[in-house]
Design a protein around this nucleic acid. Structure first.
Lengths: 229, 229
DNA sequence: CGGACTTTTGATTGACATCAAAACGCGTGG
DNA sequence: CCACGCGTTTTGATGTCAATCAAAAGTCCG
C-alpha cells in the first residue's frame, strides 16, 4: 500500500500533476491513523494548530483561504494519494474541507522532519515540492493572464488528463468551488461551460459529469486568446 | 559567507518572505562559480537545459513565463540570498532575466540531490520549499481575488516589509514588470499608484523610488475591498 | 409533493484593458 | 550646456469582459 510508484510521463505537458505526488508513506505508517470525514466537514481551519499532515485514502479535499469579505481562493483540490497540510510553523495557513465523503490518514507533524534523516525520502520530498511549486506557477499564469473560458477549459483539461480517461469524468466539486479555484464567479463558470457545450467541445450528461468530445479544440481554447466561432 | 542565518519573525504576517530563504550554501560552495549579468540579460530561457541552479549575490532577478500571445507572468522577483532555478527534470520551466545588473553564484543541479544526504540541509530545504509554497499561495489569492489597487498596495507592502525600511524604498523593476507580476497592465499599475499618492498613502520622489507615509492606510487598502474616500 | 439548494440564463453595471497621446527622464552628440 | 531621440511613465477617452443583480429551471431528499 502506498508503494513508491513511478509512472510514465503522460505527454509533452509543461506542467503536470507530478508522478512524484505518489509518495511512499510507508516510513510514516507506523504512526499513521485513519479518519473519515463527510462532504462539507472541515479537517482544520486557517490558524488552527497543525499537529498533523494528511494523505488522502479516498475522496476529494479542497484547501482554501478566506478573505475578510468572504471571498475564497481554493488553492488546490487533493485526490487519492495526495499529501497536504504541510506547514513550516505550528499552525495551518489554509482551511481543508471535504468535497466528497473522504478518508484520510494522518501523520504527526514532526515525522516530516524525521523523514529528512532518510536521503531517499528527502529526495522524494524535494521532488514533490518542486512539482507543487511548478503547478502553483501554472495557477499564477492562469489567474493572472487567462480569460474566463481559458481558465475553465484548462481546468477541465487538467481533470481529464489526471483521470486519464476518454469516457465520462466526474466533477465532484460545485460550480462555486470551481469559481473559487479559478478566480471567477459561479455564473461565469456556468456560461463558459455552456459555451463549451454549445461548441461541441464537451458533453455534460449532468451538472457533475462531463466528457471531452474534441480534445484538440479543448486544448486550443485553453491555450490561445479566447473564443472564435 | 552565507552562514546559516536565523532571523526573528517580523510580525503577525500570515505570509512572509521566509527567514529560511537565507539558506546555508556552504555545503555547495566547493563547486560554486560566480557570474555577472547586466540588466535585461537572461540567465536562461524556458525550455533550456538546467545544469545549474543559482543564488543571488547582488541585484534582482525576475523569473517569468511567456504565453503564445506574448503576455508574461512574472512568478517571482528574487533578491540577495535567494535561491532559484530549481527544477525536477533537466530543463527550466521559466525564463530568468536580470532586472538590475546582478551577480549570481551557480551550483550544479545534482548538488541539490546530494544535499539530501545531509539531514540538516534537507530540513532547511524542506522549510525553504514550504515557505515558497506559502508565498505562491498568497499570489494566488492576490491574482484570483484582489482588485487592482489591492494588488498594488500589497506589492508595495511586501517590498517595504522586506526592506524593513521606514525611509525611501527602491523600486528596481519597471511598471511593465510590476504589471506582469500582478496580472495587470502598466496603465492600471500607474493609476493605482497615482491613487495611492493622491490619498497621501505613499510618496514617490521619482518613478523608481517610494516611501510609505501611512502604513496603516496602506495595509487597509491591501486588505479590504477597494477605494473609499 | 414541497422546500431548499444548485445550476443556468438574462439584463445591467463596473473595473480594468485597450487605444491614443502627452509628459517625463536620460543618455548621446552637437 | 542644450537639443534631440528614444524609452518609460502618466493621463485621458473608449470599449469589453466578467461581476453583479435578478429570476427561472433543475436536482436532491425528506
Amino acid at each position: 500500500m502506498f508503494a513508491l510508484v513511478e509512472t510514465t510521463e503522460p505527454g509533452p505537458e509543461r506542467f503536470r500533476k507530478a508522478s512524484s505526488e505518489q509518495l511512499d508513506t510507508a516510513i510514516f505508517a507506523a504512526s499513521a491513523c485513519v479518519k473519515k470525514i463527510k462532504a462539507g466537514e472541515t479537517l482544520h481551519m486557517e490558524g488552527d494548530p497543525a499537529p498533523f499532515f494528511y494523505q488522502i485514502v479516498s475522496g476529494v479535499i479542497k484547501e482554501y483561504n478566506t478573505l475578510e469579505d468572504g471571498r475564497r481562493q481554493i488553492t488546490e483540490f487533493y485526490e487519492v494519494g495526495d499529501i497536504f497540510g504541510l506547514t513550516d510553523d505550528q499552525e495551518h495557513l489554509y482551511t481543508a474541507e471535504a468535497v466528497t465523503d473522504s478518508v484520510v490518514r494522518y501523520f504527526p507533524h514532526d515525522s516530516l522532519m524525521r523523514a529528512c534523516n532518510s536521503p531517499a525520502l528527502s529526495r522524494r520530498l524535494l521532488l514533490l515540492f518542486i512539482s507543487r511549486l511548478n503547478r502553483s506557477c501554472e495557477r499564477m499564469i492562469m489567474l493572472g493572464r487567462m480569460s474566463a473560458s481559458q481558465r475553465v477549459a484548462l481546468f477541465l483539461r487538467r481533470l481529464a488528463g489526471e483521470m486519464e480517461d476518454r469516457g465520462e469524468i466526474s466533477l465532484p466539486m460545485s460550480r462555486q468551488d470551481i469559481a473559487d479555484h479559478l478566480g471567477l464567479t459561479t455564473e461565469t463558470v456556468c456560461r463558459s461551460l455552456t459555451e463549451l457545450k454549445r461548441k461541441g467541445v464537451i458533453e455534460m450528461p449532468s451538472a457533475r459529469r462531463f466528457s471531452v468530445r474534441d480534445p484538440n479544440r479543448l486544448q486550443e481554447v485553453s491555450r490561445v486568446a479566447c473564443d472564435s466561432v
